[in-house]
Simulated scan of single mutants.
Amino acid sequence: MTSHNEILDAALAKITTGYVFPELTGPITEAIRARQAEGGYDGLGDAEFCAAVTADLQAVCPDKHLRLMWSEEPAPVEEEDSPEEEKARWLVRYREGNFGIARVERLEGNVGYLDIRSIPDADAGTDAIGAAMQLVAHTEALVIDLRQCRGGSPNGVALWCSHFFGDDEVHLNDIYERATDATRQYWTYPHTPGPRYLDRPVTILTAAFTFSGGEELAYNLQALKRATLVGETTRGGAHPTDWIAITPHIAVTVPAARSINPVTGTNWEGVGVKPDVEAKAEDALETALALLAAE
């Protein structure tokens, strides 16, 4: 059985070598080691231990992706998957979640509605995303509900965004990666699996729960003035993250990259994506439909 001290050693090693802001890894290590030395983690169960370490990590560095995670369901602890194995494992998850698409509807007033809970990799999700866009293609306005979206793939975000612009010359986002010391640009795709949704209003619903890739989708379309955001300020996680299992039940999540929006020059880390029209999450759809009806 892996001790809590061994788990801390492994987690801090991964943070030191992988965190996108290397200048912060020293203060992070010092704070965790000080807490460990004073007995701050003694006598805790695994779930409580992970919560305590996460709180201490975020007290030093308020990065919502930087966490020690406990899971009731065991996960395999492997040195490293091959790209093919990792792709296959994610494909199973995407299929189990219907590629993140929970509902597609046509609401009263010929308003399309998409309930998106997660965002798959573009290659895996292309057919599902195309089918969803086909079903709302002839509506007069579109509501994209991201209130329960927990995140997803940057290239999947780019694929969703591509349906709302006329060509492949729209610069959506940049992501800087520490491991390669390189910045990757994300642009709209020249071809989309579903029909493009142009010259009609798009409204995005947000909640305090909305996170990561869901936030990027909202942020990109808001920055480019292609969508109106209605709801609550989102959670504020803008750093693509590596998930590394330390034991079958405990993993460390390490932000290995950071987003840089080409319009704003920054991102939503720590501050969230702020809506254009504030509303309680449970009232956001009603508010959005009233705004669309008044146009």
Rank of each mutant, 00 (worst) to 15 (best):
A141P: 07
E23Y: 02
A207N: 05
P83S: 00
E232Y: 05
T54L: 11
F99V: 03
A52W: 09
G166V: 01
V111N: 13
N173A: 09
I244H: 11
A47H: 15
V263F: 09
V92I: 12
T253H: 11
D167V: 02
R106C: 04
E48Y: 10
A218I: 11
L289R: 11
A207D: 12
T192P: 11
S3I: 11
T188L: 09
N261K: 01
R67D: 03
H138F: 05
P275I: 02
I144C: 12
E84D: 14
G45P: 10
S259N: 02
T264H: 08
A128M: 07
L291P: 04
Y19H: 05
T180V: 01
L221P: 08
L8F: 03
G26W: 01
E216S: 14
G43V: 08
L224H: 08
C61A: 12
R178L: 05
A122P: 08
L91C: 06
Q58I: 06
W70N: 06
K64P: 09
K225I: 11
V263A: 10
E295C: 05
D145M: 08
L24P: 13
A131L: 10
R178Q: 13
Q134W: 09
L217W: 15
A227L: 04
R178D: 05
F164N: 12
T25N: 03
P255K: 00
P262D: 01
A281D: 03
C61P: 09
L44I: 04
Y219A: 14
I175N: 00
T247P: 14
A223D: 06
A290M: 05
Y219E: 15
D81I: 07
A34V: 01
L159Y: 01
L24N: 12
G109P: 04
S212A: 12
N261P: 07
R35Y: 10
D127G: 14
D283S: 07
T188E: 10
N5I: 13
I7R: 09
R200V: 06
G272F: 03
D174Y: 05
A122T: 01
R95H: 11
E282S: 13
A238W: 00
P62D: 06
P193C: 13
V230Q: 09
W160M: 10
L8P: 03
D145V: 10
A132I: 14
A207R: 00
E216N: 13
V53N: 03
G237S: 15
S153P: 06
W187D: 14
T253P: 04
T210A: 07
G270W: 01
V157G: 00
L57N: 06
L57T: 06
A13Y: 10
N155W: 01
T264S: 07
K274V: 08
E232C: 08
A122D: 10
G213C: 02
A256N: 05
G231E: 00
N5C: 03
H239W: 00
T210E: 10
K274L: 09
